[in-house]
């Protein structure tokens, strides 16, 4: 972790263009989501835009180098856990609702999460076996 953190710090100035591109994609996504009233969330649209930009770059005769955007993205994704702390601390303001419906919410959350995990993984593995592309991914690098 320390190695990664050091790399991120050393590369911080070079990541500014990448960070700007990520924000630009989100901005475009939010503008379209709010402008059209689509139910699609702005950041998800932004992710699709960034993916299209990266795929489009591959099609160029000489693709542009992308270390700035990949560095910024890897840096933020390496610390994904941090981003959920503020929302989690919000639990202090909702203790009354949690106490009132505590048992029901606990049963609903635990059962639905286990069901969601199991159904997703079993359907994924089952369909993968059906279409004959089972097993571990090859280009894991």
């Amino acid at each position: 972790m320390r190695g990664l953190g050091g790399t991120i710090l050393a590369n911080l100035p070079r990541m500014i263009p990448g960070a700007a591109l990520i924000l630009l994609c989100q901005l475009a996504g939010e503008a379209i989501a709010h402008g059209t009233g689509w139910p699609l969330p702005g950041p998800v649209l932004g992710m699709m835009f960034l993916l299209l930009l990266l795929l489009g770059n591959d099609l160029l005769p000489e693709p542009l180098p992308t270390p700035s955007v990949t560095g910024a993205a890897d840096g933020i994704l390496a610390n994904l856990s941090l981003l959920f702390i503020p929302a989690g601390v919000g639990i202090v303001g909702k203790l009354d609702v949690l106490a009132q419906y505590g048992l029901g919410l606990a049963v609903a959350l635990v059962a639905s999460t286990l069901i969601g995990l199991a159904v997703t993984a079993l359907v994924f593995a089952g369909v993968a076996r059906l279409v004959g592309r089972d097993g571990e991914a090859e280009d894991a690098a």
């Binding site: 989100q26 992710m47 835009f49």
Partner: peptide, 8 residues
Amino acid sequence: PATVALAV
């Protein structure tokens, strides 16, 4: 931004 970054 982290959601957008998942494109990478």
